[in-house]
Amino acid sequence: MDIVFLDQNKWIELAQVHSGRTTSGPMAELFPQLVAAVQRKRVLFPLSVSNIMETAKRNDPDSRRHVAETQAILSLGYAHRSRAGRMAVELRAAIQRRFGVEPVAMPPNWAFAPGFMQAFEPMDELMAMPEELARVRDLNSLTHPAALYLDFMVNQDDIRRRKAIATLTQGLAALVVRIESRRERFANKSIDFRRRAYAAQSWAENLNILNQTVAALGYSFDQLRALGDQAMRALLEDVPTMNVEVEMAARLESKTGALSANDVLDMQSFYTAIPYSDRVVAEKAAISRAKQARLDSKYGVALSRSLEDLLDLYVG
């Protein structure tokens, strides 16, 4: 079964068909093909945390419902696990490989989970506290994950939704400010320099999880450092989420013009999707940055700018 990631604009294009606003043309032909392919288990379109947040942001209830219904139909309520959950598995395996230990094989498609809540760290089964873990499992046992997602998007309290979106917007704005500050410090620097600087910052920000993981495996940080700088650089490239984030961020920060919250969401989507998808369909600029970094060849993922590339792909 193929795993395909769609950025939010592509979901909106398909929702136009589902809502009846688009009745002819390539999208009108494509949408029923995808629905049938999902039902035949030929393809699945899991949601990212960015997809979920962007859908929740839509203030018009009918528009939000149409997008959510489209996502529920094609994702079946499955989502990419939280960043922390993926990182924990990736980092553990990467450290073991540095010490010559073969990591325990993970189940196929372990990076996806039923229930949109698992896109968020507190409710990800890989990270959740026991009480939250029980809550997630109870909800999934009582309600189909797709129905649970749709219920959340359609029936959630509007005041709470708006407060949550306001908090999200503030957080994204603050992140853009930090990125712009770094861009100013590294003005006229090469992409390679930016990549190394961002990598160093990423390790600093994730030092706690690195130390915890090393200790849990029975090693010390000094033993890891003793492997040398080359091993440490290889470790970063062997943690897919961090590697894609560094590559995308270095190129994002080198672009001209002001950055926006959407640029940050694109970066989050790509470090979520690229390592675990067979195909990513997204906007031109983000796809171009990923191709410049050769992430498609590294992770064996097809990168597309248009939904029309899926036309007839899963027919028959």
Rank of each mutant, 00 (worst) to 15 (best):
Val239Asp: 02
Ile179Tyr: 10
Phe193Thr: 15
Arg251His: 12
Leu235His: 04
Ala226Met: 06
Ile209Ala: 05
Glu245Val: 01
Arg196Ser: 10
Arg182Trp: 08
Val246Phe: 06
Gln212Ala: 12
Glu253Asp: 11
Ile165Cys: 11
Gly228Leu: 03
Ser181Gln: 08
Val214Pro: 08
Tyr219Lys: 01
Glu247Val: 02
Thr167Met: 14
Leu259Ala: 07
Ile159Glu: 13
Glu247Arg: 11
Gly257Leu: 02
Met242His: 08
Gln230Gly: 15
Glu253Lys: 09
Phe193Tyr: 15
Phe221Ile: 02
Ala231Asn: 00
Ile209Gln: 09
Asp151His: 02
Asn208Pro: 03
Gly218Phe: 01
Ala216Ile: 00
Arg162Tyr: 02
Asn243Tyr: 04
Gln212Ser: 13
Ala250Cys: 14
Leu259Ile: 02
Asn208Thr: 04
Asn188Asp: 13
Trp203Val: 07
Ile165Thr: 10
Lys163Leu: 12
Leu227Tyr: 01
Phe152Ile: 08
Gly228Met: 07
Leu210Val: 12
Leu217Gly: 13
Gln212Thr: 14
Leu207Lys: 00
Phe186His: 14
Ser181Asp: 03
Ala234Val: 02
Thr213Ala: 00
Ala231Phe: 08
Phe221Val: 06
Arg233Val: 00
Leu168Ser: 09
Gln212Pro: 00
Phe221Ala: 08
Arg196Thr: 07
Gly218Met: 05
Ala197Tyr: 10
Arg251Asp: 11
Ala226Leu: 05
Ile179Thr: 14
Lys255Arg: 15
Glu253Trp: 09
Gln223Ile: 06
Glu184Gly: 00
Thr213Pro: 06
Gly228Trp: 04
Arg161Val: 00
Phe193Gln: 11
Arg162Met: 04
Asn208Ala: 02
Glu253Cys: 07
Ala216Asp: 15
Gln201Met: 05
Ser190Phe: 13
Gly228Val: 03
Asp222Val: 05
Tyr198Cys: 09
Met153Gly: 02
Arg196Leu: 09
Val176Leu: 09
Tyr198Lys: 04
Ile179Cys: 12
Ala258Lys: 12
Glu247Tyr: 05
Gly171Gln: 09
Ile159Ala: 12
Met248Cys: 05
Ala250Leu: 14
Pro240Arg: 05
Leu217Ile: 13
Ile209Ser: 05
Arg185Phe: 10
Ser181Cys: 08
Val177Gln: 10
Leu172Thr: 08
Ala164Tyr: 11
Ala197Leu: 11
Leu259Met: 14
Tyr149Asn: 11
Lys255Thr: 15
Gln201Tyr: 07
Ser190Gln: 14
Thr256Asp: 08
Gln212Trp: 01
Thr169Val: 04
Asn211Glu: 04
Asn155Glu: 07
Ala199Phe: 01
Asn206Ala: 07
Leu224Pro: 04
Gln170Ile: 01
His144Gln: 08
Ala147Arg: 04
Arg160Tyr: 06
Ser181Tyr: 04
Leu148Ala: 15
